[in-house]
Design a protein around this nucleic acid. Sequence first.
DNA 1: CCGCATCCGTTCGGATACTG
DNA 2: CAGTATCCGAACGGATGCGG
Lengths: 140, 140
Amino acid sequence: METVVENQKVRTIKKLEKMFGHIDYRNPPELCPVRDVMSVASDQWSILILLWLGYFSVLRFNKLKKYVYGISNKVLSQRLKVLEADGYIERKAYPEVPIRVEYNLTEFGRLYVDKLLDLAEWMHDNSPKVMANRKRYGLE
Amino acid sequence: METVVENQKVRTIKKLEKMFGHIDYRNPPELCPVRDVMSVASDQWSILILLWLGYFSVLRFNKLKKYVYGISNKVLSQRLKVLEADGYIERKAYPEVPIRVEYNLTEFGRLYVDKLLDLAEWMHDNSPKVMANRKRYGLE
DNA sequence: CCGCATCCGTTCGGATACTG
DNA sequence: CAGTATCCGAACGGATGCGG
């Protein structure tokens, strides 16, 4: 049992070394692409957008706005643009009247959602624990 | 090969259903703990703090400030406080002169870093692709 | 229907100076 | 050393109205 935990630790360190070996901490953030990429991909709203697209495959602007509860026009369209630029989603506009626009994940986006989902699932399962921690901390 | 992709999709949908089954999208964000927990745990600075703590096990305030390049006093101490409250890290103060304070991951935090690392590793591996997407998008 | 433009309050976060 | 306090500019984000 102890060795399982130890092995886990070693694997963790290995991965971190792989990453940190490529990330000189003295580099300014502009020179560290991972930070940049991560800041888009781990944005709160973006995560919700991607998850809902993962669920429905195809969604139109106003449907997205409905599901990603609380998002504003401005933020939604801005995030969609960035997510499209980074290659996670695809935008298709049909020149009808009124115009119809559909969004869906790219293959790359689907891969990312898959990763993201592991994390989201973990958070979902553990959010009660975190809320409890928070409460206890507040009382001390 | 097709079936592998299909199976993948099915598993993704299953997970999303599990989550979305518990998250009524009409709920305001205040009533959705996952969003709240996620916003702390997926914060840019918090992620960097947690990863470095995963690597070094124990770090003092100023060491953290050095490794989490570019972070300010204010933001660092604020994030540390929140991460402690949520149960990811532990703070130990030794009443020496000058005072010494050490931070380390809790067991819970280590579990989270493990999840986080999968995501970070993926981003690290794929950041060149994202940067390329971005560039191409800019040219169109 | 999709989304941009504008306005404007709020929050975030960096820099600096200071204390136990 | 490990923060806190303060100031201030910058960025974020919500609401609304308009245009294609």
